[in-house]
Amino acid sequence: MTPIEKWPVFRRHDQAAACLQIWSDLGRAPRTIEAYARGLGEYLLLCERSGVDPVTANRADVAVYVRELTSRPHHRGANVISMDSGVGLANATIQQRLVPVRLFYDHLIEEGLRSSNPVGRGRYTPGRRRGGQAKGLVPRLTKLPWIPDEDQWLRILHVAQSEPVRNRLMLALAYDAALRREELCLLRTDDVDPSRRTLRIRAETTKTRLERVVPYSATAGVLLSQYLRHRATLTRSRGLLFLSESRRNYAEPLTLWTWSKVVRRIALEADVERFSTHTTRHLCLTDLARMGWELHEIATFAGHRQTDSTLQYIHLSGRELADKLRGGMEHIHAWRVQTLAGETAQLNSEVAR
Rank of each mutant, 00 (worst) to 15 (best):
P30G: 09
R31F: 02
T32A: 04
T32R: 06
T32C: 06
T32F: 09
I33H: 02
I33N: 04
E34I: 01
A35D: 04
A35N: 13
A35C: 06
Y36S: 08
A37R: 06
A37I: 06
R38C: 13
R38L: 12
L40Y: 04
L40D: 07
G41H: 08
G41K: 10
G41L: 07
G41W: 08
L45K: 13
L46W: 12
L46V: 05
L46H: 13
E48L: 11
E48C: 09
R49P: 01
G51W: 10
V52Y: 06
V52S: 09
V52D: 09
D53P: 05
P54I: 10
P54E: 12
V55R: 13
V55C: 05
T56V: 11
A57Q: 08
N58D: 15
R59F: 01
R59D: 05
R59E: 14
R59H: 09
V62C: 03
A63D: 13
A63N: 11
V64S: 12
V64F: 01
Y65D: 04
Y65E: 04
Y65G: 05
V66S: 05
V66M: 10
V66Q: 07
V66W: 07
V66E: 11
R67D: 12
R67L: 10
R67K: 11
E68P: 00
E68A: 15
E68K: 12
E68T: 11
L69W: 07
L69F: 08
L69P: 05
S71G: 12
R72H: 06
H74R: 09
H75T: 08
H75G: 03
R76P: 00
R76C: 09
R76M: 12
R76Y: 07
G77H: 06
G77E: 07
N79T: 07
N79D: 15
V80P: 00
I81K: 12
I81V: 15
S82A: 13
S82D: 08
M83S: 15
M83A: 15
D84G: 02
D84P: 07
S85V: 01
S85G: 14
S85P: 00
G86S: 09
V87M: 08
G88H: 02
L89W: 11
A90P: 00
N91M: 03
A92V: 11
A92K: 08
T93Q: 04
T93V: 02
I94P: 03
